[in-house]
Design a binder for these strands. Structure first.
Length: 477
RNA sequence: GGCGCCGUAGCCAAGUGGUAAGGCAGAGGUCUGCAAAACCUCUAUUCGGCGGUUCGAGUCCGCCCGGCGCCUCCA
């Protein structure tokens, strides 16, 4: 079995074969830092995270690039409105993005190039396209890509010719385009651009990059400098980017290099809030910070994202999030139980349940990253292993082996909260209370014992009596 | 109008043409001083509707109903 992945370029699920294994180069379209990224953005970033982790599980050496878009219409507009420079506006949101990324336990990419740091590379790319006759200067001082001269244009999005609806609004700067499909590579500087410091000198005029240019310039530069190639193995992003963004990236990159830009195009579907697409317009934007501030553990968010295949729309509701949180709780309790059972032992050969887990996990993930099915295999394992533990048929060596398999799978999915350190004072207090409860129970004074349990519960401590004695944990909040 | 997607139990959701994974919630039971956790049993004779192909369809084809996305710098 090998990984098969759906490639938007061919509209087929294909065996994954990187250009130069074991290396895999991967580019995931990152955030535009004009505001906080919302959970829909993060769904895509989690997809990138899962894909990258699974590739590593398979033994590939992944080099992941994620761009930070810190200059575009929205960042400039927001900075101008706030009366601050572009940098002053984007810096805090960039920092916030990294915080949110860590909250959601998305493993950091290898590099995070930001658009403003790659202006010279972008200028070079525009020059190259001008030299090759694929770009032209408009009367407004902007530079446009001549889509009609790039024969494969439209292959990714399967759009032969973009038709503008009659009466559609046409921005003033578009009057100088030779073809309605042409898009700006370089936009002539406006007073607003100058006011916030979003204008740079270039041989073809002062201005700033068009939206699509940065991804081409940054990804090509990174893989060329590091690996001497001009083709990415994987390029990922949200479905909305297929057109025009990724279509235009292909035109820019392949027009300049003459080589395939990306071998596999992976697109994640949208996340909806109560059945509607998230957008400013509907006032239903939900950011990762909102979730964190509401006290939701990131594990529940990851679990919810993992419950739906990446090419299916995901409906984010409070009820679904609660359900996911309960699943996380079950899984976390189980891992703790298994770890206790494995304490101090060396691993035996893997028990059948563990063998089934790993096989089920791989089969599911190999099938176009079917994470929901992989999670199904995980819970099937939980039930089977609990049964064995109840029956006492696993000794510590079996438990150790099963735990090892579980950890392997969780290294990819990362669905469990990191255990927080318990302060010594609380620990001592709980120990004292549990001892008092033990004495009360021994004296068969159950009223007193239950009162102590309630007292602990009031402080968020949950007690469970097991054959090995009472166990406790912090729960809820 | 063009391109495309979806409709599976109360909720979320997987499903290679061969007889409906998994999670949450719910009911009953085992265990327990009582709980909790865990385990066991039950909860869709059926996959939006109607036709068709087939020995056999949630899975393929057609039509219809309902919902959604892209085609405007939105992940």
């Amino acid at each position: 079995m090998t990984l098969r992945i759906y490639n938007t370029l061919t509209r087929r699920t294909e065996p994954f074969e990187p250009l130069a294994p074991p290396r895999v180069t991967m580019y995931v379209c990152g955030p535009t830092v004009y505001s906080y990224a919302h959970v829909g953005n993060f769904r895509t970033f989690v997809l990138g995270d899962l894909l990258r982790r699974y590739l590593e599980y398979l033994g590939f050496e992944v080099f992941q690039i994620m761009n930070i878009t810190d200059v575009d219409d929205r960042t400039i507009k927001a900075a101008a409105a706030a009366g601050v420079s572009l940098q002053d506006h984007t810096r805090p949101f960039t920092r916030a993005f990294f915080e949110d990324r860590d909250y959601l336990r998305i493993r950091p990419a290898d590099v995070y190039p930001s658009a403003t740091e790659y202006i010279p590379r972008m200028v070079e790319l525009v020059q190259r396209l001008l030299e090759r006759g694929l770009a032209y200067r408009g009367e407004d001082g902007s530079v446009y890509y001549a889509v009609g001269k790039f024969e494969p244009y439209g292959r990714l999005s399967q759009i032969e010719r973009r038709e503008l609806k009659a009466g559609a609004r046409v921005a003033s700067d578009e009057y100088t385009k030779e073809d309605v499909r042409d898009f700006a590579l370089w936009k002539a500087a406006t007073p607003d651009d100058e006011a916030v410091g979003a204008a740079w000198d270039a041989p073809f005029g002062r201005g700033r990059p068009g939206w699509h240019l940065e991804c081409s310039a940054m990804s090509l530069t990174e893989v060329r400098q590091r690996f001497g190639v001009e083709t990415l193995d994987i390029h990922a992003g949200g479905v909305d980017l297929i057109f025009p963004h990724h279509e235009n990236e292909i035109a820019q990159s392949e027009g300049a290099t003459g080589r395939p830009f990306a071998r596999y195009w992976v697109h994640g579907e949208f996340l909806f809030i109560r059945g509607t697409k998230m957008s400013k317009r509907f006032g239903n934007q939900l950011t990762a910070r909102d979730l964190r501030e509401e006290g939701h553990d990131a594990s529940a968010v990851r679990m919810l994202i993992c419950s739906t295949h990446y090419r299916q729309q995901l409906n984010f509701t409070d009820e679904a999030l609660e359900g996911a949180a309960e699943g996380v709780r079950r899984l976390a309790d189980f891992r703790e139980r298994l770890a206790d059972a494995a304490a101090g032992a060396a691993a035996a050969s893997a028990p059948q349940e563990a063998v089934d887990l790993e096989r089920g996990f791989r089969e599911a993930m190999d099938d176009d990253l079917n994470v929901p099915r992989a999670v199904g295999a995980l819970f099937t394992f939980v039930r089977g292993a609990n049964r064995e533990l109840d029956a006492g048929s696993w000794g510590p060596p079996e438990a150790r082996a099963a735990l090892a398999t579980l950890e392997t799978v969780l290294a990819v999915l990362d669905l469990l909260p990191v255990s927080e350190a318990v302060d010594a004072a609380l620990e001592a207090w709980v120990a004292e209370r549990l001892e008092a409860r033990r004495a009360a129970r021994k004296a068969r004074d159950f009223a007193a014992a239950d009162a102590i349990r309630d007292e602990l519960a009031a402080r968020g401590i949950e007690v469970e009596d097991t054959p090995q004695g009472p166990r406790w944990r912090r729960r809820g909040g």
